[in-house]
Design a protein around this nucleic acid. Sequence first.
DNA 1: CATGAATGAGTATTCATTCAT
DNA 2: AATGAATGAATACTCATTCAT
Lengths: 194, 194, 194, 194
Amino acid sequence: MAKSKKQNILDASAELFVSHGFDNTTTLMIAKEARVTEPLLYYHFKGKDDIFSKIIHDVFNEYAQAIEDLPKNTDTEFEKIANLVRLHSQIAEEHPQSAMLFLSNCPSKLLHEHHTCRDILEKQQEMVSSYIQSCLEAGNAKKEFDVHPVEQTTLILLCLINEFMRMKTTRKKRYQPNMQATIEFCRRVLVARS
Amino acid sequence: MAKSKKQNILDASAELFVSHGFDNTTTLMIAKEARVTEPLLYYHFKGKDDIFSKIIHDVFNEYAQAIEDLPKNTDTEFEKIANLVRLHSQIAEEHPQSAMLFLSNCPSKLLHEHHTCRDILEKQQEMVSSYIQSCLEAGNAKKEFDVHPVEQTTLILLCLINEFMRMKTTRKKRYQPNMQATIEFCRRVLVARS
Amino acid sequence: MAKSKKQNILDASAELFVSHGFDNTTTLMIAKEARVTEPLLYYHFKGKDDIFSKIIHDVFNEYAQAIEDLPKNTDTEFEKIANLVRLHSQIAEEHPQSAMLFLSNCPSKLLHEHHTCRDILEKQQEMVSSYIQSCLEAGNAKKEFDVHPVEQTTLILLCLINEFMRMKTTRKKRYQPNMQATIEFCRRVLVARS
Amino acid sequence: MAKSKKQNILDASAELFVSHGFDNTTTLMIAKEARVTEPLLYYHFKGKDDIFSKIIHDVFNEYAQAIEDLPKNTDTEFEKIANLVRLHSQIAEEHPQSAMLFLSNCPSKLLHEHHTCRDILEKQQEMVSSYIQSCLEAGNAKKEFDVHPVEQTTLILLCLINEFMRMKTTRKKRYQPNMQATIEFCRRVLVARS
DNA sequence: CATGAATGAGTATTCATTCAT
DNA sequence: AATGAATGAATACTCATTCAT
């Protein structure tokens, strides 16, 4: 029993939110899965929503850190873009649960303005799109790229990367795009033609 | 009373499924919104799931028809791709509800093998990717395109289009990619360089 | 379509009341089984209770008639008792449905003073016990029997006959008493010893 | 608050099942009668069926114990039969509720093969009939009895005892057979004639 | 005689949460 | 830190019955 009961609750909840969805996971299911009684959930957390928030924040923080940790000094700006794709591919493969948690529970909550998901989704967009935009601008400056409407291209690349991860996580193998091909695709779009 | 009560139920349900999600929409909410009594839901449909299925099938059939109706004879193959992007942009703008219904309710249900959503999502993928792949192959043959791993590129374009629609539907204006920019982006990738 | 729809309803109801019990038979089930729409039930009958009453009365009238029709002139009084047992055995075998209808639906309704079942059950007791009592008294007078507390013996024989039919109708073969043995049993009790 | 709420639920349920029948007893009625809220029923039991099962098992176990406890050593075998009748008479008088519960709810459920009632009814038959049969065989051996088809006579006595209890429990006084007369009736059938 | 549409009142059951200990 | 007992509010769904035609 290395894990604390509190951690048990978080782990069990994460698993259930992924496999059944937030709405279809009951506090009783969580308690049973975590080998804990229901009132203990309320001792450690404010309620079901709070458990979800904690989990989603943890997941996001790890993700944010991973992006932060991407190499800042690379030979080319394109390498940075490629690294971004690689990171997402790796997350989809190594932590599919974390990705799923986000992808399958958040959409239906997005409409509620002040929901945890909305905040985080916005942060993620902000973070990734500013990463991409920096690359594009730097690349254009170096004549490595020749990309015109920088902001629009940023958004489109953001689309591409998000959906790339979504498909890797939620679809059948035959519909999962290949990482290398995706990187080449980006190269074609970005890299200035001689 | 121009609309039949049955149609009222479908309309009210669609609206609520979009705004609250399937799980957070109660049969009572549907009945009230449709200005109908609850038992009538069960007279016309087998239950909440059945209402959802009917709606999602209707939405999908309209979508499938719209793709079917895209012009078959165009000057260039690229025009077909552009048309596909335009169609999705148009749907996101003119029928955001239909798009949302699909995008916000299906993900959490995808795990259940035989769920309506899974069937339909697969059909959509099949349909759109075979449309794209035909274009790419024809374009390559005509030397209009010079696209190498045809299948992978197909998948990536599928990603792009799906997420393009998703972002137009679910995100704030400032994160919505512009249609014309997206088409130009595709052109850059696809059209053979002189 | 030899049978009228009204008769269809009665037949279907009888079958369902037997197989599912009155409370577990819905008007919809009856309508479907009778290949009729629900409102028609209310055209022909006042409601579910009324259908039940009609059926139970029909069944009882047939039963009462059968008892009425038992031979009045027999060599011995005992023969009349034997005939009574034979009749019940025959009903249990030839019209198990009618017997079941009565046996499985009435008990839980017996408590409600003015229920159809109570009326009929009382009539049946009155009828059968007066039949038995006449036999016993006549048999005693003729010295064929030597039965002392006539009224009590009547009641006990009533018990025996009722439960005999119940067991033949509702229990497994191995618990069904044999008719001939039952008659011999009665003979032993009733017939005066030389 | 001498009784636990769990016991309150069982008591209230038993009373209601007897007075209204299982199908006509709602969980709300039970909760109100037990001065408890509805969800508590589901905290202590799996559902309405489970409550019924628990009660019927309790009742049966008491009954089985009472039969077990009947004196094993008696002067005559007939005394044992008489004791059996006395026991049933006593139960009908002292615990009419328990008897009614069984008699009025089980019949309509008997058709469902694996229902609690069927299991228990079979056990009761097995138990009582093996008790009777042992007596008859022992009595025959001792020449106390002179009973010929032992098995059939066993079944008929089982009939007699079951219906005796049923009538004592469910019918009007004037149709309730007298215990002593029933015992004498049995004596007449069983005891060998000089 | 017949029915498609509709409903008031309910019906077993569930759920997130709290309380007393 | 932990739990057995308890609940207010709901939740999908059902049923006998009726109405308009």
